[in-house]
Amino acid sequence: MAALSLAKPTPTLRLSPSFPPHSHRHPQSPLPFPPNSSASHFLGLRLSFTSPPSSPVSSLGRFFVSAKVNKGQVPPPFTLKDQDGKAVSLSKFKGKPVVVYFYPADETPGCTKQACAFRDSYEKFKKAGAQVVGISGDDPSSHKAFAKKYRLPFTLLSDEGNKVRKDWGVPSDLFGALPGRQTYVLDKNGIVQLIYNNQFQPEKHIDETLKLLQSL
């Protein structure tokens, strides 16, 4: 009878479902389980969203709450400086298709390859009646040197502070450590008809973009 009495649950032994009922408190932790337990790791992931911005999980948290431009939408307007320091607005391109491609940075291997691929196919874009616009966080002087070095015939815009990138919801790569590489095709009415994201195969942006433009 004594054993049955001990087995009877009492209010003082009841725990929240969030904590394992048979765990015991670690002497250096306020949690009712050792810090290296699986439950602690799970809770750590939840708590890490309040950690400093350098945390990879924190970066993921920022990504999930960001706005996002989708196919069939008109993206937020912008006015940015080009490689010559002149202000260029998105509305300038209305009435003709425009390819807006966001890239991480001038002079990096993938971005150079992508820019040169757009350059080499530029006549095809012109034939399709489309303009090409590249956007990164580099300043106008960096864009000017980049365009001159590789003879880029199209506009490069300086999104210092990455405001437009954030407004359009361009996703980052590598847990937020690397600005994303994303291409948008807008039709003559300014409506997004294609969104293509491929960080590590930059030339495919040109192929996918031309396919759509030639079908419009």
Rank of each mutant, 00 (worst) to 15 (best):
A2I: 10
A3L: 13
S5E: 13
A7D: 11
T10F: 02
P11V: 13
L13Q: 12
L15N: 11
L15W: 11
S16I: 07
P17T: 09
P17Q: 11
P21Q: 13
S23W: 14
P27N: 02
Q28P: 00
Q28W: 07
Q28T: 14
S29K: 10
S29G: 06
P30N: 09
F33K: 01
P35N: 11
S37F: 05
S38I: 14
S38F: 13
A39G: 00
F42C: 08
F42L: 15
L43S: 06
L45S: 11
L47H: 12
L47K: 11
F49V: 11
S54E: 13
P56T: 08
P56W: 05
L60S: 07
R62F: 11
R62S: 14
F64A: 14
N70L: 14
K71W: 00
P75I: 09
L80I: 06
L80S: 04
D84C: 07
G85H: 11
A87R: 09
K92M: 13
F93R: 09
F93A: 03
G95P: 06
G95M: 10
P97R: 03
V98P: 04
V99L: 09
V100Q: 00
V100Y: 00
Y103Q: 03
P109Y: 06
C111G: 01
Q114K: 07
Q114A: 11
A117W: 02
S121H: 15
A130P: 03
V132T: 06
V132D: 02
P140Q: 06
H143I: 03
H143C: 04
K144D: 08
A147M: 05
K149C: 04
L152H: 04
T155G: 01
L156H: 06
L157C: 05
S158C: 13
D159Y: 06
D159L: 09
N162P: 00
K163A: 14
K163H: 09
V164A: 07
K166G: 08
D167F: 03
G169T: 08
L174W: 03
A177M: 10
A177V: 02
P179R: 06
T183Y: 01
Y184M: 12
V185Y: 01
V185N: 02
G190M: 05
F200Q: 13
I206A: 05
Q214K: 15
